[in-house]
Every structure is written in structure tokens, then in C-alpha cells.
Design a protein around this nucleic acid. Structure first.
Lengths: 231, 231
DNA sequence: GTATTCTGTCAACGGTGTTGACGGTAAATT
DNA sequence: AATTTACCGTCAACACCGTTGACAGAATAC
């Protein structure tokens, strides 16, 4: 945990809160994750977090220098959660796919954490583990050195970027999401073939694809390219 | 403009603001874009926007139902800006690459807009144009129907997701960004080879790649895969 | 010339992250 | 065991944020 910067860490005392709770960084991360799990990403604020734990909201700042630091700690916990029970099989491509889908899954469930960490480093232990895992599969595929690092970075950034964006979309209120789909259909159900010939030609298919995410398909494109490179 | 939902549009009157300005949706979008250009993404708020224009902040709500709607309008303007002066050459792969890089460029300069629109539809005219452009290149490459649509969606989501994430990172205060790079180096400059053998093996290269974005490299992987599929 | 609708202004609400002072309490020191 | 020290939970407050509803003047319509 030494590398988890900006987390205030030192010996803790057994001081109790007004309602009797004994605080710790782990407990706060737990509470934050379950708060999001139960009431959605929008429910996560320092005040609500304090209410859920049973302490003054500002007590959180005794353990994390900012909510950003809290998000990083949550992210590392999420990585652990994503890898829980994962057993690499024989196929490196299938393993990478599984890692991507598991990571995508947990981040999509925690949009604000995903956004906060998408382009960054938690510095936590579980992050090191997943990087080692990915690099291991790439090594087995035959990549090494500079190329392996570039590919692992691309793979990681790809997964995180899609996770963050999709999470952001899914976390929107239902009405906003519905309005988006509606706008999509309005815009492309009646395209002028003179102005936009190619779009008009595919319009029905475009409209039909309004709601689905392209993550899985795009991931497959990436993995297929890796396979071609490995050969 | 009819499809640009949530923009309040009707005949406008010539009423002047206290400082003499005559408001319009276009003027507000202009002001918002230049506000971000001059003072950074964090400078964009309804209050500061009003101050920059020379009107009461809440006057913005006479033209846009919410800041989200304003962001969508800004996004469509940015698409136009990205495509300005673009002339497709003979190579569809090069054209797609150019479109991707131009789009990436404008969105990276406007992080909040990028985040707001990454997984969504502006419904604006310029958006239709860029989709038609991309679909046109894919048609020329030999793709059609379901596959062409899937590929265009993947391409678009890919570019937007990377743009949003990279924009978010670059928009962070310098100190936060520096702390991130530092944390990266701390975490991976001294890895235990027993625990994380693959990571330890590549550690020096990983550390060296701390700051660079993988967008261009990852885009090339995607385009290469498209090329293979087209053949 | 009157009526109506538009639209800029104002005050206010409820929310956010964060800071600094205060004081009791647990641990460290003597 | 007594005293000092450092911690850390609490409280009040600051400076923001997006958004709403009432109000009134001004431009258009009749």
C-alpha cells in the first residue's frame, strides 16, 4: 500500500465516532462502494458517505486527501474484484478477452471511479497484478520488450476508455438516456440521400444499432490484430 | 438544426442585454468555446459564461434547456471545426486516420464537451456529415450493410472514448498530472520479480512510457485490422 | 393603441468539495 | 501513574455549482 499516494496512512487509534463506528481507510472504501452499489453513482458524495458510515462527512479527509484519492483507492479494490476467481486457461487470446470483459464489468458499475481512473494509475497492488497478468499473456503470445509494453498499454487504455465512456452513458438518468436514443432515431431515420448518400444507404441499420455498445466488437478487432501480429 | 433536441429555438427578438449584447444560441456557443480556449475547461460555468458574454448567467437557459444541451451544441460545432479544410485523398485508410486525428484534436482541447458527448449523439448536421464521410470510406474499402455500420460505430466510439479520456487527463491541474507520473514511476521502477515476473522484466520500458498517450498506436492497430478485413 | 408573448434580470434553493479551528481521547513519554 | 503530545472526529463556514420561479420591461402581433 506504500505506493497508494495521497492516502494518509499512519498508525490509527481506536477513537470511536459519535454513533460508535471505528473508522479506517478500508471501511470508508467499503462504504463508498456499497453506497454506489445500492443507490447509484450519483449517491456518492462526501456528505452522504458520512451519513452512511455514521460519522461527520469531513472525517473522510483524515483518511483521504481528496475524493480523487478515494476514487483511486476504490479503483484498486475494483481491480481485485474483477480478477476474483479468474483462472487463466490455455489460450492467451481468450485470457485477454476475459480480463478485458471482467474489468469492463466492474468499472461500468462504478462510473465515477472509472472516469477518475481511466487515464491514470492507482499505484495499488492489484493494479500491478493485472498488468503482470496482461504482460504475461502477451509474452506467451510472443511479444517482448518495447512492443509488448506498447501493446499492454494500448490494451489497458482501450479497456479503460470504453469502460469509462459506457459507464458514463449507463449512469445517466433513464429519461436522458431515452432522449438520446430518440434523438439518434430522429436524426438518422430520415436522411437526405442527396446530401449524405452513404449514411442514407445504411440508415435503417444505423437506427437499429442505436442502443448497443460496441465494446465487445471493437475488443475483438483489437485482439484479432494482436493475433495477426503474433503470427 | 431541427434535430438538435433540447435547444430552445424560435424566432428571436432584438432585446438587448444590460451591457448591450444581443444574445443568440450561436453567440453563446462561441463564447463558451472561447472561454474554454482562453482559460481552460474548468473556467466554463454558467456564471462565468454570463460574465464573459455580458448578461445575467440565467439568460443562457432561455437558449439551452441545460448545460448538457449546451455541450451538445458545442460538440456539433467542434465537429465542424475538426473537418474544416479536410480533403479526402485517394487512400481510405489515410482518410480514416486523418478524420480520427482531427476529431481527437478538437475534443482533447475541450474535455468537458468530450466527456458529455463521447457516448452520445448531438443530432446536429455536422455529425451527420462526419458519419457519412466515415461510412463513405468504409464503403470504398469494400464494407457494406451490417458490417459497415458495426465498423463505423466501433471506429467512432473508439475515437470518442480515447478523446474523452485523454482530454480528461490533460485537463487536470499540472500538479495532479505530475503526481500521477510520479506515482507511475514509484510503482513500477522497483517491482518484485518473484511476485510480478513479467512486469519486472519490462519495468524499465514501462516506466519510460509513463507520459505518452497510446491513441495513435492503438488507432493504427484498429486500422490495420480493418485493412486485413477488407482484403 | 392595446394585448401578448418573449426574454433578460434578480433572488434563492439545494447541492457540491474543501478548509480551519476546537476539544476530547488515546497513545507516548517521563 | 501522571503528564505531555499527537491524533482525529466534530462543527461552522467558504466558495463554488446547476437550476427554478417570480418579475418587469421591451418587442412583436392584433
Amino acid at each position: 500500500m506504500a505506493a497508494m499516494a495521497r492516502v494518509i496512512e499512519s498508525r490509527r487509534r481506536n477513537t470511536r465516532t459519535k454513533t460508535g463506528a471505528v473508522l479506517s481507510a478500508e471501511l470508508i472504501v467499503d462504504a463508498a462502494l456499497s453506497l454506489v452499489g445500492e443507490h447509484g453513482a450519483a449517491a456518492l458524495s462526501v456528505r452522504r458517505l458520512g451519513a452512511a458510515i455514521g460519522c461527520d462527512p469531513t472525517a473522510v479527509y483524515r483518511y483521504f486527501a481528496s475524493v480523487d484519492a478515494l476514487f483511486l483507492a476504490m479503483a484498486d479494490r475494483l481491480i481485485a474484484q474483477a480478477l476474483e476467481g479468474f483462472e487463466p486457461g490455455g489460450d492467451w487470446k481468450a485470457n485477454l478477452r476475459a480480463i478485458a470483459e471482467r474489468t469492463y464489468g466492474v468499472y461500468v458499475a462504478h462510473p465515477r471511479v472509472a472516469t477518475a481512473v481511466a487515464s491514470r494509475v492507482t499505484g495499488g497492488a492489484h493494479e500491478s497484478r493485472v498488468i503482470d497478468l496482461v504482460l504475461g499473456e502477451l509474452h506467451r503470445a510472443g511479444f517482448a520488450g518495447e512492443q509488448a509494453v506498447r501493446l499492454y498499454r494500448s490494451f489497458g487504455d482501450f479497456v479503460l476508455a470504453f469502460s469509462a465512456v459506457d459507464a458514463d452513458f449507463l449512469a445517466r438518468p433513464d429519461e436522458v438516456r431515452a432522449a438520446d436514443v430518440q434523438r439518434w432515431q430522429d436524426a438518422y431515420s430520415d436522411v437526405d440521400p442527396g446530401q449524405f448518400p452513404h449514411l442514407a444507404a445504411e440508415a435503417p441499420i444505423v437506427v437499429a444499432h442505436a442502443e448497443s455498445s460496441t465494446f465487445a466488437f471493437c475488443l475483438e478487432l483489437l485482439l484479432d490484430r494482436l493475433e495477426a501480429l503474433a503470427a
